[in-house]
């Protein structure tokens, strides 16, 4: 009898949990877009805001044509999996996945139900095997040539470019290979240091500074960009300019960047999603898109602090990176 009483208590607990479940899974009539963002940092946030703007631009109104279910996984892959499965269970009309781990999880969760997945902020969709099936999106491939050209113009005397990257991020590994392959054409050599964890980044920065590189150039490496402020602290002291890979990094103190604006990338992604929601095309029919136009963003304060001069042809094309 005692055992039965104990089991009853367990059953009550399970009941409470399932009630919480049912309260949680409220159904709504309008179509739901599930946004799964891998974690919160400025570039990915911009991407999401741009995505919402892109839907708006296409004439879709939130609350009327769609509702948003936004989740972020706090950079935890297991949570990204559960978020994607929640979207799948709720039968969302479309999943928007920001950054590769979220996209992989959404794609796996949507496999059976054929829910369209639109990704953004993925450098190499082919490498991530996200280029076939009911999936499409936008890639944030780096503009390596434009960046090298920009550095050459701002620092005509420079020889070596230092780059920090995370060895486990495929995006970064392929970007390093591209940098090394192209650096020669612009008269540079690349000094790259790989790290495995965020705690190693500042140590690696010290090591690059000790090697007397002429400048740093950043990738869109989440681990490295996450501690950009402490890198800049060290490089500013050493008088070494740091180039960013997108506008947000320049806002935060890099001298300049030839790169993409994640807000624009998000808008482009939103436009794709709108076409799918309106039934104009299926995700499987739309090839993923790459931003072809790169902007040149500068931070005048940082440029002045680093004693760099901007040549006239660059000045004509550049945009000051500032928060509006």
């Amino acid at each position: 009898m005692k055992n039965i009483a104990k089991l009853t208590r367990i059953a009550v607990l399970v009941l409470i949990l399932s009630l919480a479940f049912s309260a949680a899974a409220g159904c709504s009539k309008t179509r739901v877009i599930g946004i799964s963002q891998f974690g919160e940092h400025a570039s990915l946030d911009n991407c999401r805001l741009g995505f919402l703007q892109g839907l708006k631009d296409a004439g879709l109104t939130e609350g009327q044509d769609f509702t948003i279910d936004y989740q972020n996984a706090g950079f935890d892959g297991a949570i990204a999996t559960q978020i994607a499965q929640t979207f799948s269970a709720k039968n969302v009309a479309l999943m928007c996945a920001i950054a590769t781990p979220s996209a992989t999880a959404c794609y796996a969760a949507a496999e059976d139900k054929d829910i369209p997945v639109v990704f953004s902020a993925i450098t190499d969709p082919v490498e991530a095997k996200l280029d076939s099936g009911n999936i499409t999106g936008t890639s944030d491939k780096l503009a390596v040539d434009a960046q090298l050209e920009l550095i050459r113009k701002l620092q005509p005397e420079a020889d070596t470019i230092g780059i920090l990257y995370t060895t486990s991020e495929p995006n970064s590994v392929s970007a390093i290979a591209e940098y090394k392959a192209k650096a020669g054409q612009y008269g540079f050599t690349i000094e790259a240091i790989g790290v495995t964890a965020q705690s190693e980044v500042t140590l690696a920065a010290d090591s690059l500074i000790a090697k007397q590189v002429d400048c740093f150039s950043n990738l869109t490496d989440n681990t490295v960009v996450g501690v950009l402020a402490s890198i800049l602290e060290k490089t500013n002291e050493a008088g070494i300019p740091v180039y960013g890979s997108e506008v947000e990094q320049v806002k935060r103190g890099c001298v300049a960047a030839a790169g993409i604006d994640y807000y624009q990338l998000g808008r482009q992604t939103g436009a794709i999603a709108a076409r799918i929601l309106k039934g104009e095309a299926k995700a499987s029919e739309i090839p993923y898109e790459v931003i072809s136009e790169y902007g040149i963003y500068v931070n005048s304060e940082a440029i002045a602090a680093a004693n760099l001069t901007v040549p006239a042809d660059v000045a004509a094309r550049m945009t000051e990176a500032k928060d509006a």
Binding site: L17, A20, F21, A23, A24, A25, Q37, E40, D69, Y70, Q71, N72, A73, G74, I79, Q82, I83, T86
Partner: peptide, 17 residues
């Protein structure tokens, strides 16, 4: 896993998960 699922499903601000 059920706890995490509930936290996700309740739709709380993501950072509170």
């Amino acid at each position: 896993k059920g706890c995490i699922q509930i936290a996700i499903s309740i739709g709380l601000p993501a950072n509170l998960l």
